[in-house]
Amino acid sequence: MTRAKPIKLEARGLSVEFAAKRVLSDVSLALAERSVTALIGPSGCGKSTFLRALNRLHDHSPSAAVHGQVLLDGEDIYHPDVDAVVVRRRIGMVFQRPNPLPGSILDNVTFGLRLAASRDRSSLTDRAERALRAAAIWDEVRDRLGASALSLSGGQQQRLCIARAIAIEPEVLLMDEPCSALDPLATERIEALITELKRRYTVVLVTHSLAQARRVSDETAFFYLGALIERGPTDRVFEDPQHEKTQQYVRGSIG
């Protein structure tokens, strides 16, 4: 298979176990730079587990064990010399439910920047503004940056979370069903945003909505029972699925 864009992130033989129960087995998947890859599959198929393995979020679940490699620009993020904190600065994440931190809108956007010991206030606000603009929420919050992040609507909160993630300028953006808690209008805005974001970032999108995967992704990977069944260009996967399970899923007979 030929690809125009270079590979940014690649899982090799990635398996995840929770308390010795295997929930993801031997997944190898390469993600092209500046593209959107949708991970689809029925609940419990391992797609979120896979996503969380890509930024080492399983490190903090004592019962989880990750095997295999995840190569970011060719280097294994699970190598013992690699600091998970550095990995997560390069691979940002947006969660299923908007999870703004207690504090103001500005506090939220600058959280990652302040961790990186950036103390310069004016550059902080500049970068916050840039991130909020990029997340298409600036016009709605510019007059109340000091207000609590919890005063925003769900859709606004999720865009704030996206702004927060891109404020530290990661290279990859992982999104775990970012629209599942949002109404159709807010979903539409986030989807437009994802299309915009892929100009700069490599986006991995877990989604339950097949329509969403079709609308926004370049590549689609179908997971079933902890295994990667099929992957390919989104149109091809939906129109001409090679695997029987994929066929059943995209036509709505399983899931």
Binding site: N55, L57, H60, V85, V86, R88, R89, G92, M93, F95, R97, N99, P100, L101, P102, F111, G112, L115, A116, C161, R164, A165, I168
Partner: peptide, 27 residues
């Protein structure tokens, strides 16, 4: 304190200690 809050901090590049003292404890 919901775990999502800790994960939000971790995903932004906070260490466990930073997540604890900047997010969990204030919350």
């Amino acid at each position: 304190v919901p775990n999502e809050q800790r994960e939000a901090a971790l995903a932004l590049g906070a260490s466990r200690i930073e997540a604890t003292f900047r997010v969990s404890l204030p919350a």
